[in-house]
Amino acid sequence: MFNFHVLPFVTVVGLCQVVTGSYVNNFDQRVEFKCTKDTQTISRVHSVHDNGAEDRRFEFECREIGMDTEGTSASCAWSANYENQLDKPLDFECGHNGFINGMISEHDNGAEDRRWKFRCCRITDIHMIDCDLTTWTNDFDKPQDYRLPSGMAMKSVFSEHDNGAEDRRYRYEICNILRSSYLVYFCTGLDHGSISECLDDNESLVMTMTHCLFCIHVLPLVTVVGLCQLAAGNYVNDFDQPVNFKCTKDTQTISRVHSVHDNGAEDRRFEFECRDIGHETDGSSASCAWSANYENQLDQPLDFVCHLNGFINGMISIHDNGAEDRRWKFLCCKIPDIHMEDCDLTTWTNDLDKPQDYTLPSGKAMKGVFSEHDNGAEDRRYRYEICNIVRSSTDPAIG
Score class of each variant (00 low, 15 high):
1 M>V: 14
4 F>R: 14
8 P>S: 13
9 F>H: 15
14 G>N: 12
18 V>W: 14
21 G>L: 11
23 Y>S: 06
27 F>E: 03
28 D>Y: 09
29 Q>S: 13
30 R>Q: 12
30 R>P: 03
35 C>T: 05
42 I>R: 02
44 R>E: 05
45 V>H: 03
48 V>R: 14
49 H>E: 06
50 D>L: 09
50 D>M: 07
52 G>C: 05
59 E>W: 02
66 G>Q: 10
68 D>L: 14
68 D>C: 12
69 T>Q: 03
77 A>I: 00
80 A>G: 06
84 N>A: 04
85 Q>E: 11
87 D>R: 13
89 P>W: 06
90 L>D: 00
93 E>M: 04
95 G>Q: 09
98 G>P: 00
102 G>I: 07
105 S>F: 10
110 G>S: 12
111 A>Y: 12
113 D>M: 02
114 R>V: 11
117 K>T: 08
120 C>L: 02
125 D>C: 09
126 I>T: 06
127 H>K: 15
129 I>Y: 06
133 L>S: 07
137 T>E: 11
145 D>A: 08
146 Y>F: 14
149 P>M: 01
158 F>R: 13
158 F>W: 10
164 G>A: 05
168 R>I: 00
177 I>K: 01
177 I>C: 04
178 L>R: 00
183 L>G: 13
184 V>F: 07
186 F>H: 08
194 S>C: 15
194 S>T: 15
196 S>F: 09
196 S>T: 13
200 D>I: 11
201 D>K: 08
201 D>M: 05
202 N>P: 15
204 S>H: 07
204 S>T: 06
205 L>K: 14
205 L>W: 08
206 V>P: 00
214 F>W: 06
214 F>I: 09
218 V>S: 15
219 L>H: 04
222 V>T: 14
224 V>G: 01
226 G>E: 04
227 L>A: 07
228 C>D: 04
235 Y>H: 14
238 D>S: 12
239 F>C: 03
241 Q>C: 11
252 Q>W: 05
256 R>V: 01
262 D>Y: 03
264 G>K: 01
266 E>T: 01
272 F>G: 02
273 E>T: 11
274 C>G: 06
274 C>E: 04
276 D>R: 13
279 H>G: 13
280 E>S: 12
281 T>R: 07
282 D>E: 12
284 S>A: 13
285 S>N: 14
289 A>W: 07
292 A>W: 08
292 A>N: 13
298 L>H: 02
304 F>H: 08
306 C>N: 12
310 G>C: 02
311 F>I: 03
315 M>Q: 09
316 I>Y: 08
318 I>S: 09
319 H>F: 00
322 G>P: 04
324 E>Y: 05
335 I>K: 04
337 D>P: 10
339 H>T: 06
342 D>Y: 05
342 D>V: 05
347 T>K: 12
353 D>I: 06
358 Y>Q: 06
361 P>I: 09
361 P>T: 08
369 V>Y: 01
370 F>I: 10
371 S>F: 03
378 E>P: 00
378 E>M: 05
379 D>C: 07
380 R>S: 00
383 R>Q: 13
385 E>P: 04
388 N>S: 07
392 S>I: 08
392 S>N: 11
392 S>Q: 09
393 S>Y: 00
398 I>M: 13
398 I>F: 10
398 I>Y: 11
